[in-house]
Design a binder for these strands. Structure first.
Lengths: 185, 185
DNA sequence: GTCTATAATTTGATAGAC
DNA sequence: GTCTATCAAATTATAGAC
């Protein structure tokens, strides 16, 4: 079946795939143009500057991630089930050698990125920690409990190290520990 | 006092500073030449290809890190003191907005880096996990204990998120948890 | 909206004089 | 070893025809 999405969406999808594999600075307008079968000037029509592309890329990624979080019925699965579902979303984002979380790689490059991209990255982490804060309110308090920003940074780091080591070991161990630390005992 | 180190060393130092702030793909031969006051062709004399520069950069970084680890007298400070010293080395590497661990940013970019640079990154993580394995042998076993690769990936992720959020919160919380998980109770 | 054409700059890299 | 000079390619970006 033919691709019915708009050119703008197709460009963003191609950009997401490339950036999540290679980093923002290793992706060019020509790469994306070639991916979707147009010329680079057409990509510039949709995203005048690379900063526009980056900012809208993060915005779309965050919206989609938030939509997935909203699908989680916390009352139904409970706070521990919700945390499991959260980690599953991160696990889905990691394909060793192919992709990590968009904001993991952008955060690493942050100091070399345009300002509006950085604001988007911060918003992503902010949304993640706020959601985790909500589900922790529904958990019995425990001295072992990891703070939301700790959970997020552990998962992002695990993705990055897994990519470099070409093994999911770091990610899988991290995911297990987050669950163990929350269940307490 | 004038800089008495060799041009080769000065180039590597300039490269380390820039790469740790901006990433490998955001640093050029001309940047480095300008930093040390020569022309880019002189940088090419010392490092014919960018891959050479990257590989030797990681190699020097790993050697220096290992030397710092070797300075830790495990018998004297004990395994818990040694772990504290290990985390202190990472803490030293993080200056928000200025630098993270070289291998944190390189690991994030790994899929877009030359092969020999990737091998160096893996060697760094390998050396780190081996050292942690040794000190854990000297600790009382505990079910809470984090695996070496978990500790390393948590610290690297915390650096990256701290950089993006322009706050040490993620790093400090992570460092504290690693110590708490090892002390057990 | 997409194209051709092209500008302006940057980049990794090399040849050859000193 | 460092320089000048240069190259070929790539990159972000724009103007204007269709």
């Amino acid at each position: 079946m033919p691709d019915t999405s708009s050119m703008r969406e197709r460009i963003l999808s191609a950009a997401e795939k490339r950036v999540r594999a290679l980093g923002f600075n290793a992706v060019s307008f020509r790469d994306l143009a070639s991916d979707v079968g147009v010329k680079s000037s057409s990509v510039h029509y949709h995203f005048p500057q690379k900063e526009d592309l980056g900012a809208q890329l993060v915005r779309r990624y965050t919206e989609r991630f938030q939509a997935r979080l909203d699908e989680i019925d916390i009352e139904e699965v409970g706070p521990i089930g919700a945390l499991e579902a959260f980690i599953a979303l991160y696990a889905e984002a990691l394909v060793v050698g192919e992709s990590v979380c968009l904001c993991a790689i952008l955060a690493a490059e942050a100091n070399s990125l345009p300002g509006r991209v950085n604001i988007g990255i911060q918003a992503f982490f902010q949304a993640n920690t706020e959601w985790l804060t909500e589900i922790q309110k529904r958990m019995p308090s425990s001295e072992k409990r990891m703070s939301p920003i700790e959970i997020v940074s552990a998962l992002e780091g695990a993705m990055i190290v897994s990519t470099a080591m070409k093994s999911r070991e770091a990610f899988d161990a991290t995911a297990q520990r987050i669950m163990a630390n929350c269940k307490g005992h």
